[in-house]
Amino acid sequence: MNTAFKENWLHKINPSLKLLTISFLFVFAITIHHFNFMITFTLSVSILFIFCTGHPYKHILLFLLPFLLIFLSTAASMILFGKGETTLYKWGILHITEESLYRGLHLGLRALTFAMMGLLFALTTKPVQLFYSLMQQLKLQPKYAYSFMAAIRLIPIMIEELQTIRDAHKVRGVQTQKGMNSLLKSIKSLPIPLLSQSIRRAFRIAVAMESKRFNSSNERTFYYQVGFSHYDLLFIGYFILSISLAYLFAINFPFFPVSDVRY
């Protein structure tokens, strides 16, 4: 993401460690079935997301808007159609129960934390640093790492290309007709130029890389050395502390009289 931002401590954390920590939190969040804990857990993630990415608050707010939609839509189907006994509202096939309501909200919060954690990572990590770190700390083979870096470099080029292809097809009248038929046609006709161009480009880049003596099985030196620092401790420390507090608070001062949201 290419918005203007200030680099701060979250940007300096070792990318592999950041990825592993966030992955662990993802799995951990799935094991939270306690509604009150889910609320305080969400708070602990949002504090970091809102205040510590170094991006202007205006952007953070803009990012939060679609999250609201995610929260609502994830919660809605469980609230409306989930199993439960204590009926709150019933109309036709809609059946809202107290259990399904809490479960729905719980799911909404869960989706929200996943979205925030993912964006937290994406906003504070440079792809090149991430893949250098994966090669150095997690022994990812260079042929995968450099392929990823080469492909990521192509993302803006491909997005622009997709737009141009759409325009070019419009001129030829592909999308002027309305209806299902032309929609299907464009689903099939859009990817062909994009994919064939991408395959050729990727192939050429791979040949160019090998012409520059790239060989995945050889030893190599690294232009960037990605290491660890005390910020890594701070990062892990923040989560240990804030999640413990979140748990204690939720157990001792529950907001709602429910515990496990599962049926």
């Binding site: 042929k143 995968y144 392929s147 990823f148 080469a150 492909a151 990521i152 192509l154 993302i155 491909m158 990817p191 994009l194 994919l195 991408s198 395959i199 480009r201 990727a202 192939f203 880049i205 791979a206 890389m209």
Partner: peptide, 10 residues
Amino acid sequence: ILVTIVISIG
């Protein structure tokens, strides 16, 4: 690998 990754990112 490179072709796979580029089309997948596409």
